[in-house]
Amino acid sequence: MATVTFVDESTAGARTPGWALQIFEERLTLRELIRRRIHQEVAEHNAANAGPRRLLVQPSPTERALNGDPAQRTARRVDPERQFALAEEAFGRNGFVVLVGDRQVEELDDEVDLRRDTEVTFLKLVALVGG
């Protein structure tokens, strides 16, 4: 059994505290690893019935503006399959890269080795101004 620690970073320098998930397999595709991460996050979110805490894919500022202030309304249940589809799409358009240990995983169907203390970093890419 592996303990996978997920960490979110951005090229702007932000880093969230890591959180761990127990994985029983020694090898998984990146796609399945992302699926499990999202399902765990969504399950915690829906159980707490609170606003998004550390979801991989967040609404844009425009979407937040159009949908109103999230603090002013009751929390809605999040659909894990919808969030997973958004994450796949974001990965495909280079919205984020994934590092397992010190190796970048470039394809969703690439298999990754999971050890006892594997760190998986989701690096959100921030667009450069004027570039």
Rank of each mutant, 00 (worst) to 15 (best):
T74I: 05
Q58I: 15
A14K: 14
L123C: 05
M1H: 06
R31K: 14
T3H: 03
V97I: 08
E41M: 12
V105L: 03
P80H: 08
P59L: 07
R36Y: 00
L108V: 13
V7R: 07
S10F: 00
A85M: 09
R77G: 03
F96S: 02
R103L: 02
L56G: 05
V98S: 12
I38Y: 07
E81C: 00
P17C: 01
H39E: 15
R115M: 08
V42Y: 02
G13P: 12
I23V: 15
D8K: 13
N67L: 06
E26G: 13
R73G: 11
E25D: 10
V7N: 02
L56N: 06
R115T: 15
H45A: 07
G51W: 01
F96A: 04
E89W: 09
A12R: 06
M1R: 08
Q58R: 14
S60M: 03
P61Y: 05
A127L: 11
A20F: 00
F84K: 10
T29I: 10
N94Y: 03
E63W: 01
G51P: 04
R53A: 10
I34S: 12
G130N: 14
T74M: 03
T11D: 09
A48Q: 13
A85T: 14
A127E: 15
R53I: 11
E25P: 02
R35N: 13
V97M: 05
F122P: 01
G131A: 14
A65H: 07
A20W: 00
L125Y: 02
P61G: 09
R82L: 14
L21D: 13
E107T: 13
E41H: 05
P52S: 06
R31I: 10
R54N: 15
E106C: 00
A65N: 04
E32N: 06
R103N: 07
A85G: 07
L28Y: 05
S10N: 15
A50P: 04
R93A: 03
R77M: 06
A43N: 11
L128M: 11
R31G: 08
H45Q: 12
A90E: 09
E63C: 02
T62G: 01
